[in-house]
């Protein structure tokens, strides 16, 4: 027993401390519940509104102004084509930048300025990236509002997130592993390839999941690029005009005041987008776990 406190004081303080602990525990639990609650409402609303509208014709059909005949195959293909651009561009440029900054760059003003810029870019609103994409890819490079322009714009948008995640993943690899490799005469690249990247890969993939999810759902930069929502033909390559799932959702929601069924179509498209996200994430998680349990 603490000698400065008498028994009464001790009991009183102990009761207070224990009460404080349980109150805070409830506060934290409610905070956690809040997120779950909102998500549940969202999913229930979307599913009740849209689930009945999902059928084979909706998934594989072409777009139409008639809600009964409208399909979203074009938007699904558009989103997939954009991902085909975004995944390799962000992985190569993002991981490459992280490797350079963490392992090759000399710590100095140049490195520090790149680092600061990346952190700042991560906070730039997505619509500004849309303007950048419009200026550089659509107009200056004269690509037009095609898959490649959309994909590159979204890549720029999510690159800072991926770079920072990859840097943290690389930094978390214990330095004594790299030292063991250098100590046997390995070059920097051999050490990166055989020791650092395999150890950092699971965390890098977690970062890439986050950034891809962001890219799939972005609408604002696409509207600025002038991506149409009412588009009948399917995209077949990098230089085709396209539309994407979030664009489809955006326009149908906007026009639901004109045609009530559009709200249901938007909800159905949201379900498809969520499922697509879920599938992409599962693939990334599968790859991550495969590498984690290699030894």
């Amino acid at each position: 027993m603490l000698s400065k406190l008498d028994q009464q004081q001790y009991t009183k303080r102990m009761n207070n401390r224990i009460r404080k602990n349980s109150v805070l525990q409830s506060v934290f639990f409610l905070s956690a519940l809040f997120g779950l609650f909102v998500l549940a409402i969202l999913i229930i609303r979307v599913v009740t509104q849209g689930f009945g509208w999902i059928d084979m014709d909706f998934l594989t059909g072409r777009l139409s102004t008639d809600p009964e005949r409208a399909g979203i195959m074009g938007a699904i293909l558009g989103t997939l084509w954009v991902m085909i651009v975004v995944i390799p561009v962000t992985m190569i440029v993002g991981v490459g930048t992280a490797i350079y900054l963490e392992l090759y760059a000399k710590k100095g003003k140049f490195q520090a300025s790149i680092q600061t810029n990346i952190s700042n870019l991560a906070g730039v609103p997505s619509i500004v990236y849309g303007l950048l994409g419009l200026t550089v890819f659509v107009r200056l490079m004269d690509l037009g509002n095609v898959v490649l322009a959309g994909g590159l714009t979204l890549s720029l948008l999510v690159l800072p997130i991926l770079i920072v995640a990859a840097q943290e993943a690389i930094r978390a690899v214990p330095s004594h592993l790299a030292e063991a490799s250098y100590g046997m005469g390995a070059t920097k690249w051999q050490t990166i390839q055989r020791v650092i990247l395999p150890a950092a890969l699971p965390s890098i993939l977690t970062g890439s999941i986050l950034s891809l999810s962001r890219a799939i759902g972005e609408t604002a930069p696409l509207t600025v690029l002038g991506i149409p929502a009412l588009l009948i033909p399917f995209p077949n390559g990098f230089f085709d005009t396209f539309t994407a799932l979030p664009m489809q959702i955006y326009y149908w929601t906007l026009d639901s005041s004109l045609v009530a069924e559009y709200a249901n179509l938007a909800a159905a498209t949201i379900i498809v987008l969520l499922v697509l996200l879920f599938v992409l994430n599962s693939v990334a998680i599968f790859i991550r776990n495969k590498f984690q349990h290699r030894y």
Partner: peptide, 8 residues
């Protein structure tokens, strides 16, 4: 090295 550092 000081601490055994085998690769995983």
């Amino acid at each position: 090295f000081q601490k055994p550092n085998p690769f995983p």
